[in-house]
Structure formats: structure tokens, C-alpha cells
Amino acid sequence: MNSAAERRASARTDLPYRLFGRARGVAPGAHRALGAGQNGAFLRHSSILETPDARRIDMRASLLDPFGGLKVRRFENRARIDVQIVLDLSGSMAFARGDRDDDPVAELCAAIAHAAIRGQDRFGMVAAGPSPRADLAIRATRRRGVPDEVWRRLTDAPGEGQGIASLLAAVEELPQRRSLVFVVSDFLMPEATVEALLERLWRHDVAPIVVRSSAFETRLPRFGLIETRDLETGRRRLVVMRRSLRERWIAQARARRTALDAVFRRHGRAAFDLVDSYDPDAFADHLLTGGS
């Protein structure tokens, strides 16, 4: 196994993701769900008349009952959920991803797929930009080979074109029941478009992931002539970088990120920043704190 493959394998670990609120479903899983079941933490005692299950009789609680009734243990329900990725494949998402064996977007998506299937959940993905990408869609599944399949597909599809019109349509293909949806994008689009995308996901628990590059935001030269290219339109421009322009550039990038965070919090939770490379420990810490 080469070093790149070893790194990808080590990055695929169990992730502490969870659905905000309780899941709905009857298929056994690891997530707290509505109702009572037999595979979760202790919930409460109830009368055997309410829960006629002699296997769950608690003799100590029954003896302590002043009315002499038989008490039965009840446990919280645990169910599986659907974990989905909504991936932006517009042209700007190709920045710094081509010709790399450590594509951060492919590695993150493969890691999510691995964690979902390891956690007994179902994994699915929709991806598009201005044009549909049905070849990248994965319907909810628990197949073990999906993480490698996700990685292979995405390393060959860095993104192209302008806008996310087809992605807005593709999210309608997600399951109707409430799912945990990771939205992976650089979100370099009008705020109204971000709002439109998140509003279409209103029934789901949305976890945004902002793909960023330090070369574009902070690792700018203090002085010199640089060429910029819009990956969505192909337009090129020469810019004379100087200290005042660099400071303004960085300030605008920070202001945009702050504005995005306000939008994300209105729709559920703060975003995770995927900067330059995928860091599984940082992502796990983010999930553990709920994005707070």
C-alpha cells in the first residue's frame, strides 16, 4: 500500500456525528429516536399493564411499589439515519484540487461515507453544478465499497461551469425523511443562492462544510504582479498586489466568511472549514461540539 493510500485509510475513522433532535425510524441503529425500544439507555419504569413484557420486569422496583404493581423497564429507542452529501461541483470548486493524490474534498466525502456505513447508517450523495452529474449520484446504501467508489469518482470530477442551478434541482432527489445532510461547497455565490439552497433542505439537519484555500485568502504576496483566473467563466486578470490591496482582500474574505456563518446558524448549525487539506481530528472535534 503506498503512502497516499495509507493516509486515506488512516483518515477514515469513526466520526461522532449526530442528528439534532431524535431520529424517526424502526431500523435498529446508533441514534436516539422517538419512542421506546430495547437497544438504548434506560428510559423509565412502567406498569406491566402498559408494557406487557415479562422479560423486562424489575423485581426491585416492583417490591418498592407501594401499590404492589409489577414494574417493567423501558429503554429509549435507537435507530439508524440517512447520511447524505450535497456536493457543489461548479468550476470554482476545482481550485487547487487537480493533479493531487490528496484531494481534500474527495477525502472528506469518502471519510463521511466510511463513518456512516461503519455506524450502520445509510449513505447517499448528490453532486452537480450548472449541469447535472447523474454519474456521481449514490442512492442511500450500506455497501462497504462505497467509500473507495466515492473517492475515485470525485478525484476525476473536480468541477466545472458557472453556478449551481442543477444542484438546486438535484437536492429534490434526497430522501423525504429527515436526514443528516453535509453540504460541501466553497459557497462563492450570492447570498441569495446560498439561502435558496439551504431553504430547499428545510426538512433535514444541515451541516455545511466550507471549502477554502489559504493561497486564495491569506497566503498572498505582499507585493508583486499576479494573474487571477475565474474558474467558472475563464476570465483572466493581472493584478498588481500591494500591501493595501492585500489587507483589503483578506478583510473582504473574512467578512464574507462571517456573513456566511450568520446564514448557516439561521438554518441550523455553524460550518466546518475545510482549508487546504482534510484533517480528520479537526473534523471530529467540530462534530463533537455540534458546530458551536
Results as ranks from 00 to 15, higher is better:
residue 3 S to C: 03
residue 3 S to K: 08
residue 4 A to N: 01
residue 8 R to I: 11
residue 9 A to G: 05
residue 11 A to F: 07
residue 15 L to N: 08
residue 17 Y to T: 01
residue 22 R to N: 07
residue 24 R to D: 11
residue 25 G to T: 12
residue 25 G to Q: 05
residue 29 G to T: 06
residue 31 H to T: 02
residue 32 R to W: 13
residue 33 A to Y: 11
residue 38 Q to P: 02
residue 42 F to S: 04
residue 44 R to G: 08
residue 46 S to N: 00
residue 47 S to D: 14
residue 50 E to A: 15
residue 50 E to I: 15
residue 53 D to G: 01
residue 54 A to S: 10
residue 55 R to W: 06
residue 55 R to K: 12
residue 57 I to H: 04
residue 60 R to Q: 09
residue 64 L to H: 12
residue 67 F to S: 02
residue 70 L to E: 04
residue 71 K to S: 12
residue 72 V to T: 05
residue 74 R to Q: 15
residue 74 R to C: 12
residue 79 A to G: 02
residue 81 I to L: 10
residue 81 I to A: 04
residue 83 V to Q: 07
residue 85 I to M: 08
residue 92 S to D: 11
residue 95 F to H: 04
residue 96 A to K: 01
residue 98 G to E: 14
residue 100 R to N: 06
residue 102 D to P: 10
residue 106 A to Q: 05
residue 108 L to R: 02
residue 110 A to C: 10
residue 113 A to G: 10
residue 113 A to W: 14
residue 115 A to Y: 11
residue 116 A to R: 06
residue 116 A to I: 09
residue 117 I to T: 01
residue 118 R to N: 08
residue 125 M to I: 05
residue 127 A to P: 07
residue 128 A to F: 02
residue 128 A to H: 12
residue 129 G to K: 13
residue 132 P to V: 00
residue 132 P to E: 11
residue 135 D to T: 06
residue 135 D to F: 14
residue 137 A to I: 04
residue 137 A to S: 08
residue 139 R to G: 04
residue 140 A to H: 10
residue 140 A to P: 15
residue 140 A to T: 06
residue 142 R to H: 13
residue 144 R to G: 13
residue 145 G to E: 04
residue 145 G to W: 10
residue 146 V to K: 00
residue 146 V to D: 00
residue 149 E to K: 02
residue 152 R to C: 06
residue 153 R to L: 15
residue 154 L to H: 02
residue 155 T to H: 09
residue 156 D to C: 03
residue 156 D to V: 02
residue 156 D to G: 04
residue 158 P to R: 01
residue 158 P to N: 06
residue 161 G to E: 11
residue 164 I to K: 08
residue 167 L to N: 10
residue 170 A to P: 07
residue 181 V to T: 03
residue 183 V to L: 04
residue 183 V to A: 03
residue 191 E to I: 12
residue 191 E to Y: 14
residue 192 A to I: 04
residue 194 V to M: 05
residue 194 V to S: 02
residue 194 V to L: 09
residue 197 L to Q: 05
residue 199 E to L: 08
residue 201 L to Q: 00
residue 202 W to Q: 06
residue 202 W to L: 01
residue 203 R to Q: 13
residue 205 D to G: 06
residue 212 R to S: 10
residue 217 E to H: 09
residue 222 R to I: 08
residue 222 R to Q: 11
residue 225 L to V: 09
residue 229 R to S: 01
residue 230 D to G: 03
residue 236 R to D: 01
residue 247 E to V: 10
residue 248 R to K: 09
residue 248 R to L: 14
residue 249 W to Q: 02
residue 251 A to K: 07
residue 253 A to S: 13
residue 255 A to F: 13
residue 258 T to R: 11
residue 260 L to C: 05
residue 261 D to T: 06
residue 263 V to D: 09
residue 266 R to T: 11
residue 269 R to D: 04
residue 269 R to E: 07
residue 270 A to H: 11
residue 277 S to I: 04
residue 279 D to N: 14
residue 282 A to P: 10
residue 285 D to E: 14
residue 285 D to S: 12
residue 287 L to C: 05
residue 292 S to A: 06
